[in-house]
């Protein structure tokens, strides 16, 4: 349904974006997040949206992949903009509003970029790409193997956990209306969803153990889609592109 947030759901295709090395896509996303976090100017926001919309167009993604914004998000944005208006600031007392709008443009742009990445990259390739990119951190004793295994499991578990959350929330409609304490109800729902998620995580963990334990990053990296010189070149090119964009926005 259009109102679902279809993150990490692959859309079949053979576009240049689909064929682009997952490591390059993940690397570019991380680099953009890092760079634009330091300089989220209007120009940076505009460039970010050019990348998102251009990427989506190049990937041949239909408009229907984009979810309708949830009402709660729109309400939250409206309240935040109103607070910004109350705060005032230059120019013409709209400084707060402009700042909020720039923040929304930046945040939604990054979300859009993550979505394009998820729609054009097979889910199983994402942890592999992340593990490959994290490999240099071994030098400073970052537990790359554990992070990679955790990511791989999280990506697999995410749809199941999301479905269970959704079920817990939707079952609330069958409760008697005489108990309307929203705080208690919210706590109950959160606790139940958490227990269900923990149980799911335990089951997945047991399944991993039964198969001989979590794969190491080295094992993941041995998969056929992993590093070669072209991969390094693609990642380098992606990060260099982001660097160039950053340079343009900064100067």
């Amino acid at each position: 349904m259009r109102n679902q947030l279809n993150l990490l759901r692959y859309v079949e295709g053979d576009s240049p974006i689909h064929r682009l090395n997952p490591r390059a896509k993940v690397g570019a996303l991380v680099a953009m997040m890092a760079v634009f976090s330091f300089d989220a100017s209007w120009l940076a926001v505009a460039l970010l949206w050019v990348v998102v919309l251009g990427g989506a167009k190049l990937a041949g993604l239909p408009r229907s992949v984009a979810p309708r914004p949830p009402r709660i998000l729109l309400i939250t944005m409206a309240i935040t903009v109103a607070l910004g208006w109350i705060a005032g600031g230059d120019p013409y007392g709209l400084g707060g509003v402009i700042l909020q709008l720039r923040l929304f443009g930046f945040t939604l742009g990054l979300l859009g970029m993550s979505m394009v990445l998820g729609w054009t990259t097979p889910t199983a390739d994402l942890p592999v790409a992340a593990a490959w990119l994290l490999t240099p951190l071994r030098a400073i004793r970052v537990p790359v193997d554990d992070i990679a295994a955790g990511l791989a499991i999280a990506v697999r578990a995410l749809p199941l956990v999301a479905e269970e959350f959704s079920t817990v929330i939707s079952m609330n409609r069958f409760r008697s209306k005489q108990h309307k304490d929203l705080v208690v109800r919210g706590m109950d729902i959160t606790a139940t969803a958490t227990v269900a998620s923990v149980r799911r995580a335990r089951e997945i963990g047991e399944a991993v153990q039964a198969r001989g334990g979590a794969p190491t990053a080295a094992q993941i990296a041995q998969t056929p889609s992993c590093p070669n010189r072209w991969g390094v070149a693609e990642v380098g090119l992606a990060v260099a592109t982001v660097g160039a964009i950053a340079a343009v926005t900064a100067f």
């Binding site: 269970e164 079920t167 817990v168 079952m171 609330n172 409609r173 069958f174 409760r175 209306k177 109800r185 109950d188 729902i189 606790a191 139940t192 227990v195 269900a196 149980r199």
Partner: peptide, 17 residues
């Protein structure tokens, strides 16, 4: 919803108290 009762296969998800 007041006229419907539902028992899920994964019953834990509906027992929130």
């Amino acid at each position: 919803p007041d006229r419907v009762a539902l028992l899920l296969q994964n019953t834990r998800l509906q027992l929130t108290r």
